[in-house]
Nucleic acid binder design. Structure first.
Lengths: 387, 387
DNA sequence: CAACAGATGGCAACCGGTTGCCGAAACGGC
DNA sequence: GCCGTTTCGGCAACCGGTTGCCATCTGTTG
């Protein structure tokens, strides 16, 4: 005991160390958590031995180790990730940076990421950048020293800024490709193509693409893919936008669309598509009879709207888990060159928002015609009590 | 310089410290971040002075401080939260523990929490417990040493476990009341009462409450409030369940409901209500003509379904911000006794899922009758392509 | 019985900031 | 010109683990 108490003596502020189970009478008494020094003293060994008993099993005698573990459990000891992280840079934490937490797309991605992280014993730091590039940079910088790696979901930062960040810590981008940075994307070209084929197969000849944010990498991919399919499938593809990728944005898009109506629309994402359908309904256009609508992502709610939304489903949860798994592989020392871009497959989900093109009239008339009572009434009622 | 280099000499592994802007040729070169020692050397002052220049402005000469800040900015220095946290326990991080990230209710709460945290310069650690109590305990324990405080949103832990945790760190519970632990709840009794009044006002005399998870505190509050209102408003209130608080759970509830149909239903939450409406539709019952449905929470999507869902709106985002603000107040030293439970107001949002009770028939017949083509067709179509 | 290898545990120097205390310098008052 | 105050920067001891190196102890082998 003599040597041990001497050892700690110099480190104690000026008196006895508080017992660990201290409980103040009220509120959050900030009870001091036990440390390896407490465990060491209680087990009659050196702090370093306690440390090794946990982080380097086999390095200490198995009996000693067991005794230490018992004492530790008894005291309720848990290794402090801060302290460990300081000296080893292993914080068992990864960062997930997201443009908009409330976007249902990211809900599933987060869930997937969380599961993969938890499976590996990692904790997740979450940053919502509210769609702002500067805020995103700030978040990344702030998180950098805390985490072992970062997943950027739909980053708004520039390629060079991302590459810069990727030099400091392992980093994986999601839904975007950046040269020299490992990424996980969905097969946007194929998805867009499938959507176009589906509509073409239903007899539609002109398709309007309702664009999302210009900064979105996926938007560019989807639009480009549609352009490429244009000739091949003998379709005509137009584009309107950009619009904010929200239900509200979709309503605005409907107004824009009414200026140059087409019988088929592909929207950048489901929220836009849903807003579009609502906008169309309020203007008296029927979906799918007058206009067929296809979205992207298959978010929660896309099967709940009426009519159910035909959409290109992305494997959202898998995106999250894949990104985190790849990130952890990098953290574990894998060379980033091995996993260029992982491309995950998409799937066309056909619901009720798409239908055979009506041949009865060549030019849609819904932009000017008024439809019978029920439609406009229901449109009015469902929009009551805006959120 | 002599004294400075001597000072650091003992701390350097065995050679010169690497320049900070080192960039390896490939991948995440794990470039060493500059420390206060680097800044100190570059600015010709002691490390402690650099530290004070940032954390204790006014303590150092303003010119010196400015010079230090310039040098620091030049080197790209950022204080390492780990190191700071280790000695001061101020990690500028709070933990948010959530039962189910994919639940749209929590999406808004998370957003609110995130905003409040970011406003105060805090980072958010997120833990999804996937509805499991043990996993929740584990998350809380793991997060404890990393964060300055914790918000438990809809905890599944026992009251005593929560109180225990609250003794270690500042803690706020959301959507639940625990004795001696500060909490933020919505006014469930008033909300339930408003829902009942609304339905009563529409002529409904018997209301079925579709219960959510038994472990849910809010579920108990809502049911209890309905029981209390029963006599007062001259209504009859029944209860079925519990059901999982999901769309799927709602579909199951519809089957259960069909055994003892009522003209009005209040569901534990919107997901359940939405599922219920779908289930009813597939069985040929019309909402709101045959059955009026009211939900809770006003989640994303509740205004998108057809008919739009009448619901008791909770100020979700405000719940998140309030919880975090209160938590940060506690962290800042406020006595936890000051803010017992904060009760936030709810609001009835009337949409199309509730209507005057049809007096034409006294007993609902939809359990056995088949309804005309369109209804069943649309029901079939919208359920295609399940997610 | 000496020499040697392997197993174990302790020492002490880190990781990067923070902060109580001290001494030097600058300043003001008489 | 002397003495009491500030102001300001440095020293060194923390925070709680980790780990290279060394000392000791044990069991082997020649």
């Amino acid at each position: 005991m003599g040597s041990l108490s001497l050892l700690r003596q110099g480190r104690i502020r000026g008196g006895k160390r508080l017992p660990c189970v201290v409980v103040r009478g009220y509120g959050h008494g900030v009870a001091k958590l036990p440390t390896i020094y407490d465990v060491a003293e209680a087990a009659g060994v050196a702090p370093s031995t306690v440390s090794r008993a946990f982080s380097r099993p086999g390095r200490v005698n198995s009996e000693t180790a067991q005794r230490i573990r018992d004492v530790a459990a008894d005291l309720g000891y848990r290794t402090n990730p801060l302290a460990r992280g300081l000296s080893t840079a292993r914080t068992m934490t990864i960062g997930l940076v997201i443009a908009d937490i409330t976007n249902p797309v990211y809900a599933e991605i987060m869930r997937g990421a969380q599961i993969a992280a938890a499976d590996a014993g990692y904790t997740m730091l979450l940053a919502d950048t509210q769609g702002s590039g500067p805020r995103e940079r700030e978040s990344v910088e702030r998180a950098m020293p805390l985490v072992e790696g970062i997943v950027l979901a739909s980053s708004r930062m520039s390629d060079s800024a991302i590459r810069m960040a990727a030099k400091q810590k392992p980093l994986v981008v999601l839904n975007r490709a950046v040269v020299d940075v490992p990424s996980v994307v969905t097969d946007n070209p194929r998805g867009a193509r499938r959507a176009a084929e589906h509509l073409g197969g239903l007899g539609h000849e002109v398709i309007t693409y309702v664009a999302g944010p210009e900064a979105s990498w996926a938007d560019g991919m989807r639009w480009r893919a549609l352009r490429e399919v244009e000739l091949e499938l003998g379709l005509k593809v137009r584009r309107i936008g950009p619009f904010p990728p929200t239900v509200r944005g979709g309503v605005r898009a409907a107004q824009e669309l009414s200026k140059h109506p087409t019988s088929a629309v592909i929207a950048y994402n489901d929220q836009l598509a849903i807003g579009l359908m609502r906008g169309l309904a309020s203007m008296g256009a029927r979906v799918p009879e007058d206009v067929s609508v296809v979205g992207f992502d298959n978010i929660f709610g896309s099967d709940l709207v009426t009519p159910g939304l035909t959409t290109i489903a992305a494997p959202l949860r898998v995106q999250g888990t894949t990104a985190v798994k790849n990130l952890l592989a990098l953290v574990g020392g894998a060379s980033s060159t091995t996993g260029k871009a992982v491309v995950l497959p998409t799937r066309l989900v056909v619901r009720a928002s798409t239908a055979q093109r009506s041949r009865k009239r060549t030019a849609p008339t819904w932009g000017t015609t008024t439809v019978s009572g029920p439609a406009s009434k229901s449109a009015r009622r469902t929009s009551a009590g805006a959120r």
